[in-house]
Design a protein around this nucleic acid. Structure first.
Lengths: 153, 153
DNA sequence: CGCTTGCTTGGAGCGCACTCCAGGGTTTTA
DNA sequence: TAAAACCCTGGAGTGCGCTCCAAGCAAGCG
């Protein structure tokens, strides 16, 4: 199978991925299963690992990756942070803090709080943009009305 | 002056740019003035023009750009759209529609409306992310509490 | 007049986040 | 057991949005 994001993906009526997580204990996924579950490509998953964005990923006896539920949880978080526009390098930094252990709690806390502020700021920006957009949309709606009544007269 | 965004920029106490727009009729700005007003670099302004993102910009008798208030308005809109994550190519498309004249009103309207939908979706995503972030922040706050009381005992 | 500063152009370069390739080994299916 | 599908690695390539460079013209100042 050619590696792709847009390949055959089983979906339910709501368009949500149907592939389900396996219960704790039997949670072993190949890279392409994780690609299906996360929407990332296998390429990207390997690349995330290379740059240090992932925790240690288990391997099968022949060296193939076997992801577990906690890895999916991590990828969910990464996906969310990516949506906020956080640079990958910053996420790598956070991943490093997690790997370094409990004594980095304070730093992680600070990082999360400042990310939170960034997200709030971005939401505010977007709402500002939304109002500009609405003004313009109203303008065009009015202009459309004017043109229509012109044609009608 | 070396071209930069972070150079000397006059600011008021609120950190807002103090450079003011000139009244209609005397509204002529050099490229570096526009850079100051918009926060873009002169490089970027010229690049925007090259790729077709700008309307026609007036020139002085020696060929230097002389921006006008309407150009600043346009750059404000571009800045807002950029914040939504809209690709520059799409903004160029919008600019083309504006240049093509009144008969593109309908298409511009549609473009604005679908952009509006995108912005709403992004806001929803960010709010979702925010709640994940808040859960994690609470977790770390609790963990911090636990560590503190451990040290106290 | 020379000096500094700013503006002009086409084209090259950069950083980010992937995205893909070559060449090989493994696993599943018919 | 053989073909098809999948997985591995290091490294090269891509697209976007700038960002900068070289070489030259122009305006203001002492």
């Amino acid at each position: 199978m050619v590696e792709t994001t847009t390949g055959t993906r089983t979906e339910n009526c709501a368009g949500l991925p149907l592939y389900e997580r396996r219960p704790e204990g039997q949670d072993k996924y190949t890279i392409s299963e994780v690609a299906t579950l996360t929407g990332l490509t296998a390429h990207t998953l390997r690349w995330y690992e290379r740059i240090g964005l992932m925790p240690h990923i288990d391997r099968s006896h022949t060296g193939q990756r076997r992801y577990r539920n906690r890895d999916l949880d991590w990828l969910d978080l990464v996906g969310k942070l990516r949506l906020t526009g956080m640079p990958v390098a910053d996420m790598v930094r956070y991943a490093e803090l997690v790997r370094e252990g409990d004594h980095t709690y304070a730093e992680r806390f600070d990082l999360l709080k400042s990310t939170r502020e960034d997200v709030l700021a971005r939401i505010a920006e977007l709402q500002d943009t939304l109002s500009v957009l609405d003004r313009k949309i109203n303008f065009y709606a009015d202009a459309g009305q004017a043109l229509a009544s012109e044609r009608a007269s």
